[in-house]
């Protein structure tokens, strides 16, 4: 099987991997790079457990080929905390009990982190719409919404802390 060299940065680190054309990006992340925080929950692009940031935008890494990541900047859940400090979204999920089994959580937090970077004060409806590509079976979403609202308040209460704004991408 012909392998291609693919170069990208992930969580700020430059990587060069060998990938078969058909290798799904999520498998490259999980298996080639060993970053197992990104999960797989379906094969039809419905569940969002595999959500990562591609050049800052949340996308489903099970519906991309690894070769498409050439030259891109990727961020996974492992890149959210900076210097061991949880980002406001991670903190919000902890404070507000926004997770139970934890399986959908990385994808959910990637989506939430991107939302709060693009929308200053999302309404509850906007939050619910924003996370509608991420399925959670445990929480009933109530506390996920609260977690994102917590993060939103936190980001606004603390003017421009570097670690928060950089987020990790």
């Amino acid at each position: 099987m012909a392998l291609r060299t693919v170069n990208f940065t992930i969580n700020g680190e430059a990587k060069s991997v060998q990938a078969e054309s058909r290798q799904l990006l999520v498998h490259c992340i999980r298996e080639t790079l060993g970053l197992t925080g990104t999960h797989v929950g379906c094969e039809t692009s419905h569940c969002g457990a595999c959500t990562i940031h591609l050049d800052g935008e949340p996308v489903k890494s099970c519906t991309m080929f690894a070769v498409q990541a050439e030259g891109k900047s990727l961020t996974t859940v492992e890149g959210l905390a900076v210097g061991g400090t949880l980002n406001p979204v991670q903190e919000g999920f902890w404070e507000e009990h926004g997770l139970q089994c934890g399986f959908c959580t990385p994808g959910m937090m990637m989506t939430a982190t991107a939302l709060l970077r693009t929308v200053n004060e999302p309404t509850e409806t906007e939050i619910r719409e924003a996370i509608s590509g991420n399925l959670c079976r445990c929480t009933g979403y109530v506390n996920i919404v609260k977690a994102i609202q917590y993060a939103q308040r936190k980001m606004h209460a603390t003017p421009a802390p570097e670690a928060v704004l950089q987020g990790g991408d």
Binding site: H46, L54, P58, K60, E129, A130, G133
Partner: peptide, 9 residues
């Protein structure tokens, strides 16, 4: 169309 994550691609 689909969901917000799909619409990013």
């Amino acid at each position: 169309i689909a969901d917000p994550l799909v619409r990013n691609r």
